[in-house]
Simulated assay, not measured.
Amino acid sequence: MTDLKELHFFSTPEHSCSYIKGYKAKTLFVDPQSNISATAFSQLSDLGFRRSGKHIYRPHCEHCQACISVRVPIQFFQPNKTQRRIYNKNKDLIVQKTIPRYTDEYFKLYSDYISLRHADGDMYPPNKEQFISFLVEGQQPCEFLEFYLDSKLIGIAVTDRLTKGLSATYTFFDPDPALQHRSLGTYAILWQIEECRKLNLEYLYMGYWVQSCRKMKYKIAYRPLEFLIDGQWILIRSQ
């Protein structure tokens, strides 16, 4: 098993913050050449690290603590009325698990999603190399969850497997307005929460929440949440 004390870490120079306009950020990376076991990756996740392709990282800003790691404690989570409605509305979808890989079908779905939902972000314009380095590469246990309406692929949730839970790494879906009523992003999270229940896992890790970032507001809809504050996971039932 990998000993965390043996890992090497690298900090980036300051760069523009992706979450708060006008702020500068620094990022701490685990040496991508390290052979990190699934157990060690889970331990790093408990310390607030996330994965992007083969890179495992967390914010490392000197004068800002706005990025807070959050996870859903499965034992206590109860969907609200809106979430129950969304879950029931999508019961006709078929979900299949597969290994991370590149296909033209996947990339078209990803490209349409980025182009229409996140054209103002640093992932635009999407390209094949970006898709592979972000979602396919990496040595950690990971699955693509394919969401099908009849025989049409309409969404993919990229999910890492941890010792105590699942990590919702990224979700992209068909931005067709005709599917908007399904709230596919919400359904993907709810599906992963239910999958944790079936697998007797304790948590769904949801990455970082930044209070002032509009695009992250959706995360606090899943309550209660645990927030990683000063190295301790704290259960917060309301926000």
Rank of each mutant, 00 (worst) to 15 (best):
F10V: 11
S16I: 14
K21T: 13
K21V: 06
Y23A: 10
A25V: 00
T27M: 03
V30Q: 06
S34K: 08
S37H: 07
A38R: 03
A38I: 03
T39N: 04
T39P: 01
A40M: 13
F41N: 05
S42I: 06
S45M: 07
S45P: 00
S45W: 02
R50G: 03
H55D: 13
P59A: 03
C61L: 02
C61Q: 10
E62V: 00
Q65P: 01
A66W: 00
I68N: 04
R71W: 01
F77T: 06
F77V: 03
Q78S: 13
T82N: 11
R84C: 06
K89W: 13
K89F: 09
K91N: 14
V95H: 02
V95W: 05
V95G: 02
K97H: 15
K97P: 07
R101S: 13
T103F: 10
F107S: 04
F107V: 10
L109Y: 14
Y110N: 08
D112G: 02
Y113H: 15
Y113G: 13
Y113M: 05
I114S: 05
H118P: 07
A119E: 13
D120E: 15
G121K: 09
M123R: 01
P125H: 11
N127D: 15
E129A: 12
E129H: 07
Q130A: 13
Q130C: 10
Q130G: 13
F131D: 13
F134P: 09
L135N: 09
P141F: 14
C142W: 06
E143S: 13
E146M: 14
E146P: 12
F147C: 02
I154L: 02
I154E: 03
I156F: 02
I156Y: 01
I156G: 06
A157D: 04
T159E: 00
L162E: 08
K164F: 01
L166D: 08
S167H: 05
T169W: 00
F172Y: 11
F172H: 08
F172V: 11
D174Y: 04
P175R: 04
D176L: 01
A178K: 08
A178H: 07
H181S: 10
R182T: 09
G185P: 10
T186R: 08
Y187M: 03
A188Y: 01
I189F: 10
Y203E: 06
Y203P: 03
L204K: 11
L204F: 05
M206A: 05
V210R: 04
R214L: 09
K215V: 06
K217F: 10
I220K: 15
L225C: 07
I229K: 15
Q232E: 11
Q232C: 04
W233Q: 14
I234K: 15
I234P: 09
L235K: 11
I236S: 07
I236D: 00
Q239L: 13
